[in-house]
C-alpha cells in the first residue's frame, strides 16, 4: 500500500453534496479486471459529453484548477461498495479527499488504498471552497502525523480524526491483510470453538 505523511497542494473543488460512487465511476466502466486505468473515467458523465468531448464547465476540465487534493460536498462516496471509486480517484492523481461527511464503505476503501479521506467541519469546508474560489491556486497543507489541514494562505487550521491503527497503516504502508495474517493461529483456534 502507498505510504502517506504530508502533502501541500492546490485543490480541485467539487462543491456538490451526496456525490455517489456511480458519479465517481459509472458501473459500465467496472469491467476491467485489474486496479489500474480507472482514472480515465473518473466522474465520467460530468467530465465528458456523450460524444467523448470534454464538458468545458466541469472543474476537472478547467486548466485553472489542479492539485492532488479533491474537495467535495458532504456525504461523499455514498452508494455502492465499488472500490473502483477509490482506485479511480487515486489513478487520476489525487492523494487526499476532503469533505464534511463520508459514506462508510467509501471511507474504508480509500484508507485500504492509501487515499486519505479527511472529514472537516461544514464551516471549514465552506472556508476552503470560498478561498479556492477567490484564488484557484490556493494550497492546503495536510499533515497526517499531527492530523491537521491548513489553508496555507490564511493559516486557518483544523484538526481531523483518524483511527490510530489506520493512521499507522498509512504512515507505514501496511495493510489489513498483513495485520491479520500475523494472527492466523488465533483464527484457527477460534474455528475450533465454533
Amino acid at each position: 500500500m502507498r505510504k502517506f505523511e504530508k502533502l501541500t497542494s492546490a485543490v480541485v473543488p467539487l462543491n456538490i453534496e451526496n456525490i455517489d460512487t456511480d458519479q465517481i465511476i459509472p458501473a459500465r466502466f467496472l469491467k476491467a479486471t485489474t486496479r489500474e486505468g480507472f482514472g480515465e473515467n473518473l466522474f465520467r458523465d460530468w467530465r465528458y459529453n456523450g460524444d467523448h468531448t470534454l464538458k468545458a464547465d466541469f472543474v476537472m476540465n478547467n486548466p485553472d484548477y489542479s492539485g492532488r487534493i479533491l474537495v467535495a460536498g458532504k456525504n461523499f462516496g455514498c452508494g455502492s461498495s465499488r472500490e473502483h471509486a477509490a482506485w479511480a480517484i487515486q489513478d487520476a492523481g489525487f492523494d487526499v479527499v476532503i469533505s464534511s461527511f463520508f459514506a462508510d464503505i467509501f471511507k474504508g476503501n480509500a484508507l485500504n488504498n492509501g487515499l486519505l479521506p479527511i472529514q472537516v467541519s461544514d464551516a471549514f469546508l465552506a472556508e476552503i471552497f470560498s478561498t479556492v474560489e477567490k484564488d484557484h491556486n490556493a494550497a492546503l497543507q495536510v499533515d497526517l502525523e499531527n492530523q491537521t489541514v491548513t489553508i496555507v494562505a490564511t493559516g486557518a487550521k483544523e484538526g481531523f480524526e483518524i483511527n490510530a491503527y489506520k493512521k499507522s497503516c498509512l504512515i507505514n504502508g501496511y495493510d489489513d491483510i498483513d495485520f491479520i495474517l500475523n494472527q492466523k493461529h488465533l483464527i484457527e483456534e477460534f474455528e475450533q470453538t465454533k
Binding site: S81, E83, H84, G108, N112, D176, I177, I180, L181
Partner: peptide, 12 residues
C-alpha cells in the same frame, strides 16, 4: 465490502 476486504476474507 470493498475489493481489498474481499481479498482479506479470501486470505483469512
Amino acid at each position: 465490502i470493498g475489493t481489498s476486504q474481499v481479498e482479506q476474507v479470501f486470505a483469512t
